[in-house]
Nucleic acid binder design. Structure first.
Length: 221
DNA sequence: ATGACGATTTACT
DNA sequence: GTAAATCGTCATA
């Protein structure tokens, strides 16, 4: 059940390698009251820094938002987008090399009931239709939809900008537990282009997204 | 100061 | 399939 906590060396590699290495490992979020929320990482994308048109650090951009992407491997980069969603990355490589891995989906394993509350609360606040929440959105909140998307998993695990810059190699609030010693073999993985970056020209077609084949928690297939 | 834009999700036709 | 929701961020002025 328990795993070995990922240390600095785990994160200090190329983003593509880290994206694959994270699959099958456990992302853990510990709330203020000690509640553990955790899921197995089943879908990731690599963002390759200054040369990658789809990356927030394309062209070497250094801004207030993306500053944590420039830090050492193992730093969390959490950003806010579309006026309502958070997404989280794990920074790869060494400080000064602004590359990262977007966590796109989890298989929920610990604290599922709390995750459901977080997701429902968020959905209610943001999309409550006239007359309140009823019908499908509440009833179809199955486990497979709980963390199957970068913003959904941030809602479920209560990850927001307050965790941006968190050092996952040391933090007690957000970290990775290695529940398998070796990376999953390529034959268990599917590699495709990344999602939602159509604006990035040639980079939109590069195969930099990986997911565990057949896993029902993956965001899209 | 302002305008355009999202590494998305949800509901609806 | 399409469209709305919703606002921090950044480039331009």
């Amino acid at each position: 059940m328990s795993g070995v906590r990922a240390d600095r060396a785990f994160f200090e590699s190329r983003a593509e390698a880290l994206a694959r290495r994270l699959l099958g490992q456990r992302l853990v979020r510990v709330l203020e009251d000690g509640t553990r929320l955790a899921g197995i990482i089943v879908e990731t994308e690599a963002y390759l820094g200054a040369r990658d048109r789809a990356a927030h650090t394309f062209g070497g951009r250094w801004t207030a938002r993306n500053e944590s992407m420039w830090r050492e491997g193992g730093t969390a980069y959490v950003y806010f987008t579309y006026g309502m969603h958070h997404c989280m990355n794990v920074v790869a490589g060494r400080a000064g090399d602004p590359v990262a891995v977007l966590i796109r989906a989890l298989e929920p394993v610990e604290g599922i009931e709390v995750m459901e509350i977080h997701r429902r609360r968020k959905a209610g606040e943001i999309t409550a239709p006239r007359g309140g929440i009823r019908g499908s959105s509440r009833e179809t909140m199955t486990n497979s939809r709980l963390c199957s998307g970068p913003a959904r998993l941030c809602q479920a695990l209560a990850i927001d900008r307050s965790l941006d810059g968190e050092d996952m190699a040391r933090s007690s609030r957000l970290f990775i537990e290695r529940v398998r010693k070796r990376a999953l073999a390529d034959r268990y993985l599917v590699c495709t282009p990344r999602i939602g970056i159509g604006y990035s020209g040639e980079w939109a077609t590069r195969p930099l997204r990986w997911y565990i084949a057949g896993n029902p928690n993956v965001s899209r297939t």
